[in-house]
Simulated scan of single mutants.
Amino acid sequence: MTRICTICARGGSKGVKNKNLRQLLGKPLIAHSILQAKASGLFDVIAVSSDNDNILQIAEEHGVDYVIKRPKELATDTAAKLPVIQHCIEQVEQRSSLRFTTLVDIDATSPLRTVDDLRFAVLMFEKHDEATNLITATPSRRSPYFNLVEENKNGYVLLSKSLDTPLVRRQDAPKTYDMNASIYIWKREAFYDTPSVFTDKTILYVMPEERSHDIDSELDFEIVQFLAEKRGSLL
């Protein structure tokens, strides 16, 4: 079994300018994910993909095995992430002559995961023979069956999901989860046969809310910074 960890970090960001380079606990944001991947001891190769030379330089300084310069067409605001991961893996395989069986991607903007989260998620996935892929999430704060609403085409508000018997208590609702953009894992065959985040055999690794914040705004960064400083280390 051969594992790769990819970390895909675009230079441009509208919500938080240069967020992958922003300092968090005295290190650039992306450095924390690199150091977590290294500390896990799980990976044959750790690779960073970016269109930004400063990000790639930081990745090299923090000891990744490969830095992959992302082509412009994969670095736009509208570019999907799965083709970026695929490009990164293919470039590494060409340079290394390795063929990876377990593909792991961790998001630099969700740095509150722990090294044990990485280890447990990979172990959970590799013990599950039938699973095609794994995603991480946290129990949702709003339930689509109880207090998450949407507008219909007439502008009226209704619950996002309904049950035959209306609920009186949120605790009685089916369990739902918020994806936290932290860890994604695929079997190689599943990733290349049907590249998707969701299949009929996607499994879930659940993380607590305090390790599940993804940075997409200045407020998100402040929350992550507060929680990181409270922990004192992201390893």
Score class of each variant (00 low, 15 high):
145 Y>H: 13
198 F>H: 07
157 V>H: 12
182 S>E: 03
38 K>I: 14
95 R>S: 12
64 V>D: 14
31 A>H: 02
37 A>S: 09
171 Q>W: 07
104 V>S: 00
152 N>R: 10
7 I>L: 05
10 R>C: 04
117 D>A: 15
225 Q>K: 14
207 M>P: 10
146 F>G: 11
188 R>P: 00
68 I>Y: 00
134 L>R: 03
66 Y>I: 12
115 V>G: 12
37 A>M: 02
231 R>V: 08
228 A>R: 00
219 L>A: 09
169 R>W: 08
135 I>T: 10
101 T>S: 09
73 E>R: 01
150 E>L: 11
185 I>K: 05
109 T>D: 13
186 W>M: 06
21 L>G: 05
139 P>A: 13
234 L>V: 04
104 V>K: 02
224 V>W: 00
223 I>A: 05
197 V>T: 14
75 A>S: 13
54 N>T: 08
56 L>S: 08
22 R>M: 03
113 R>Y: 15
27 K>D: 02
106 I>G: 06
194 T>K: 15
111 P>W: 09
20 N>A: 11
110 S>I: 11
109 T>P: 09
119 R>K: 15
37 A>W: 04
73 E>C: 07
156 Y>N: 13
103 L>I: 13
231 R>I: 15
156 Y>G: 10
60 E>C: 11
128 H>C: 01
227 L>K: 14
200 D>F: 02
50 S>D: 02
216 D>I: 09
117 D>Y: 15
29 L>S: 06
72 K>G: 06
145 Y>A: 12
97 S>W: 06
111 P>A: 15
161 K>F: 14
124 M>D: 10
23 Q>A: 10
129 D>F: 15
130 E>V: 11
177 Y>A: 00
147 N>Q: 05
156 Y>A: 12
68 I>S: 01
219 L>F: 09
57 Q>N: 13
45 V>Y: 08
152 N>Y: 15
14 K>I: 00
140 S>M: 01
222 E>A: 05
50 S>H: 09
184 Y>M: 06
123 L>K: 13
15 G>A: 06
123 L>Y: 14
231 R>S: 10
220 D>H: 04
173 A>P: 08
68 I>Q: 00
225 Q>M: 13
143 S>T: 13
219 L>N: 12
18 N>M: 04
90 E>T: 09
221 F>H: 05
42 L>R: 14
138 T>P: 07
158 L>M: 01
212 S>D: 02
31 A>R: 00
39 A>T: 12
98 L>I: 09
134 L>Y: 03
130 E>Q: 07
39 A>H: 05
116 D>T: 15
176 T>F: 08
5 C>I: 02
152 N>V: 13
43 F>E: 07
208 P>W: 10
